[in-house]
């Protein structure tokens, strides 16, 4: 075996150890510090300061003003409609989303891949297009001879559309990972299909289902573009909070808009925290 005679590659010049040389570790830490600083500035400019401004504006006229703005008849009605619809939609998705995920994971039929891809469409579709699309099928002039326009059911359908992917996409990966051995063991012990599902599969899916339902709820509470068209924006009847806020902005009542917005954000925050706590408690129980 020949001795490998490596060609003369000039050695890198050695840096003399001087007092001014910054140790490598400190340099790395400075880089991270700068990065963190930039990220914080970016977040502040775009997200934090603007949101803080909303909260600040809402408390501009004191607590009195805040509650008056939130409790004006149309705003309050909208809040009730928004929250009730959001809860309803979350519950429907809890069931249907799980069913759809189940079919996508466990069933086989031609065109399944296409269906699977289409589930994400509400994520990608502009909300105004979703609104248009739903008005076409469920508004006046609908080929199905249904007219949900100017009705709360129209709002409900629009919200179902935009929240479709949430539970499906959180449950699907869990189902995929789920070891079917457990179900087979249950069957061998005499448990029927539904019992097995209820006692074995469902508990394992619960965290994902709840997480998805929470996402669906927050999305439904915030929705604007898709409900706008089909609801016809009838005050006290089919207006959702986002639309009321929009109206306030258009009539230059930014303080009122801010108050309702802050209230809405607070609710979303509370729900998210509550869900997180529930998840954590469930996780601890294993």
């Amino acid at each position: 075996m020949t001795v490998v005679k490596a060609p003369e590659i000039p050695r890198q010049q050695r840096q003399p150890e001087t007092r001014r040389e910054v140790p490598a570790r400190a340099r790395a830490r400075a880089g991270t510090g700068v990065g963190l600083g930039v990220a914080v500035v970016y977040l502040s400019i775009i997200v934090l300061i603007p949101l803080a401004a909303v909260v600040a504006k809402s408390t501009d006229g004191g607590a009195d003003f805040f509650w008056r703005a939130v409790r004006t008849p149309d705003a309050w009605a909208a809040l009730k409609l928004t929250l009730i619809s959001a809860v309803a939609v979350a519950l429907v998705n809890l069931v249907m989303g799980t069913v759809i995920a189940w079919v996508l994971v466990r069933d086989q039929f031609p065109g399944k891949a296409v269906v699977d891809t289409l589930i994400d469409l509400p994520f990608a579709l502009p909300t105004i297009v979703a609104g248009l699309v739903l008005v076409a099928l469920y508004g006046s002039g609908s080929p199905l001879h249904i007219d949900l326009a100017y009705a709360r059911s129209g709002v409900f359908v629009a919200l179902l559309f935009v929240t479709l992917p949430f539970v499906v996409r959180t449950v699907q990966p869990v189902l995929l990972e789920l070891d079917q051995d457990m179900e087979q063991a249950a069957h061998s012990l005499g448990a029927g299909g539904w019992t097995t599902f209820r006692r074995i599969v469902l508990p394992n899916l619960m965290p994902a289902m709840i997480s998805g339902a929470g996402l669906a709820f927050t999305r439904a509470v915030a929705e604007f573009g898709s409900v706008n068209l089909i609801s016809g924006n009838l005050p006290m009847k089919t207006q959702v909070s986002a639309v009321v806020i929009y109206g306030r902005i258009e009539s230059d009542d930014t303080a009122g808009a801010a108050a309702i917005s802050t209230f809405l954000l607070a609710i979303a925050l509370i729900v998210l925290i509550a869900l997180e706590l529930v998840q954590r408690r469930a996780a601890r129980r294993g």
């Binding site: 401004a53 909303v54 986002a242 806020i245 929009y246 902005i249 808009a257 801010a258 954000l265």
Partner: peptide, 14 residues
């Protein structure tokens, strides 16, 4: 978690 109209409002206020 933030509604798009609230996003718009927030930016207008700043």
């Amino acid at each position: 978690a933030v509604s798009p109209v609230i996003v718009g409002l927030a930016l207008i206020l700043v």
